[in-house]
Design a protein around this nucleic acid. Structure first.
Lengths: 143, 143
DNA sequence: ATATAAATGCAAATGGTTCGCATTTGCATT
DNA sequence: AATGCAAATGCGAACCATTTGCATTTATAT
């Protein structure tokens, strides 16, 4: 379902290589957490390179289409975030206070034989998303 | 964590009763699935009543603040959806093809003693969201 | 080396959501 | 039942993430 680095390289080799695509890819490779388009722009600008936001969106759409990246919309965030599709499904906890994203290293669905009970027949499941929410230690203190 | 009807009534009694709020509440009560602001508007207009979209958003914000409703942003949808906070946590499956939302009647987290392994200490979990994605039988056929 | 289709730079449009302000409404008090 | 006041709403405009259109540039196959 998810890929290792070689698998990513194989997918990348199937699309045209351009400088903007390399820039976005480099940022995603280095990121430990999914990033928004604006965050990716900021990372690229830090290196002195220039790129347009619409180009980033187009590249991210392509990456998602080619299964290179995964797009998510986390709790109450008003923008989408993107991460490489290289981890065995990773999930996150989101702080309601500061919107910090914290990586979760395990998954409740992977470890047992969960059978979803859906109100419609014949749904073919291709993936899942789990999000915990609550307060990080810092925001918890402030309340 | 979630509430029954009486608990909702108790929360409602603490806020000023107005016609627009009643209209939105009526729609949410009848809905089997979470609805977007625009869908709520459409339902209200079907009854011949008139209401402004910005009013709906303000009412929904209030309902969320008062724990009367829950706001979610489902996979790849570009708008938020809202549902009453009356079910013992309900999760959904979302069709990648037609964006149909299908209710899931069980939950993988409720049934076992899952201990999340987070990369940050002291996170206080207040809730969670689980979403399956894939293709509904109809969209699956088309592929 | 060149042709061609695809990608990008840039600006303008779009669509969901929020904000500002004048008017109206619900409710507490008389 | 009438009054006053804070809060809610109607309405339009603003906002912000994302998308689109088009002229120009670029990567790759020939």
């Amino acid at each position: 379902m998810t890929d290792n680095i070689d698998e990513l390289e194989r997918k990348l080799s199937k699309i045209k290589q351009t400088k903007p695509r390399r820039l976005v890819m480099d940022v995603l490779r280095d990121a430990e957490k999914p990033l928004s388009a604006v965050q990716i722009l900021a990372e690229i600008e830090k290196t002195g390179e220039q790129i347009w936001l619409s180009t980033i969106y187009r590249i991210l759409d392509l990456f998602v289409e080619k299964d290179i990246a995964i797009k998510s919309t986390l709790l109450d965030q008003d923008q989408a975030v993107y991460g490489l599709n290289q981890y065995q499904h990773t999930h996150y906890a989101v702080c309601i206070g500061c919107h910090r994203i914290i990586t979760m290293d395990n998954c409740p669905i992977a470890c047992d034989s969960f059978e979803p009970s859906l109100r419609e027949d014949g749904f073919r499941i291709t993936g899942h998303k789990i999000e915990l929410y609550g307060y990080c230690s810092e925001c918890d203190k402030k309340r």
